[in-house]
Amino acid sequence: MSQEKDFLEKIEKHKGVIFKISKMYMDNFDDQNDLYQEIIYQAWKSYKDFKGNSDFSTWLYRTALNTAIVFLKSEKKRSFIQNQRIEHLPVNHEAYNEDDDRNMKIMYEAIHELSAIDKALIFFFLEDFSGKEIAVQLGITEVNARVKLNRAKSKLKDIIDKKKII
């Protein structure tokens, strides 16, 4: 199997991760799509260096998060982030629930107010990563990962509570 075909199959299998990270780090549809493409591009550029010492998904998480953080910090994107509204992909109207949609909007708006590292922690939490797995991903101790995660969850809860009052 060619390297390109192998890469594309793996990306297809894990595209949900890329989508979630894009949505967590960018607050409008166009920027989410730009980040999605940038993550794939950066993953492809570094795929030749992927040795298989870890699972592809672990490597992709790190690549995607690093790309998202760099992308978010760029001056060009920072100006787009301010004062933009969240845009959504088409929804399945049969399963559509207005309250769920409102809660998802509030959650993503709140996530956008977190720091880049807190976003990563919340992403790992939402993906059911253990404290140990989060520590490995971030290169910190397990205790530190758990403390940082609890702080990030607390910040997120406070932001969401404020948004629901408004």
Score class of each variant (00 low, 15 high):
11 I>S: 04
31 D>Y: 07
17 V>C: 06
46 S>Q: 15
23 K>V: 09
6 D>M: 09
27 D>S: 09
27 D>L: 13
36 Y>D: 00
41 Y>G: 01
5 K>N: 14
33 N>C: 09
15 K>T: 10
3 Q>L: 12
4 E>Y: 06
26 M>D: 04
7 F>I: 08
11 I>W: 04
37 Q>E: 13
3 Q>Y: 00
42 Q>M: 01
27 D>C: 13
9 E>A: 12
41 Y>S: 13
45 K>M: 07
6 D>I: 07
10 K>W: 00
37 Q>V: 11
47 Y>A: 03
17 V>M: 14
31 D>C: 03
36 Y>E: 00
30 D>N: 08
37 Q>T: 14
20 K>D: 09
17 V>Y: 13
9 E>K: 12
25 Y>K: 15
38 E>Q: 13
23 K>Q: 10
8 L>K: 14
42 Q>T: 02
38 E>I: 12
12 E>W: 05
34 D>E: 13
8 L>Q: 15
22 S>R: 00
46 S>W: 02
28 N>A: 05
11 I>R: 00
35 L>G: 10
11 I>F: 06
15 K>G: 02
20 K>P: 02
35 L>F: 04
47 Y>V: 07
12 E>K: 10
45 K>E: 15
23 K>F: 07
24 M>T: 06
33 N>M: 12
30 D>F: 00
12 E>Q: 11
15 K>D: 13
41 Y>H: 07
29 F>D: 11
38 E>S: 11
33 N>T: 11
5 K>C: 04
33 N>Y: 11
32 Q>T: 02
7 F>V: 09
10 K>H: 03
7 F>E: 13
9 E>Y: 04
46 S>G: 09
45 K>A: 01
12 E>F: 09
25 Y>R: 12
28 N>Q: 14
35 L>N: 08
10 K>F: 01
8 L>V: 11
18 I>A: 01
18 I>R: 02
23 K>W: 05
20 K>S: 11
28 N>K: 07
32 Q>E: 08
30 D>H: 08
24 M>A: 13
3 Q>E: 08
21 I>T: 03
30 D>C: 00
39 I>W: 02
29 F>V: 11
20 K>M: 12
4 E>H: 03
38 E>H: 12
27 D>H: 10
46 S>E: 12
11 I>P: 02
9 E>V: 07
36 Y>R: 06
17 V>H: 12
35 L>A: 08
27 D>K: 09
21 I>A: 08
7 F>C: 09
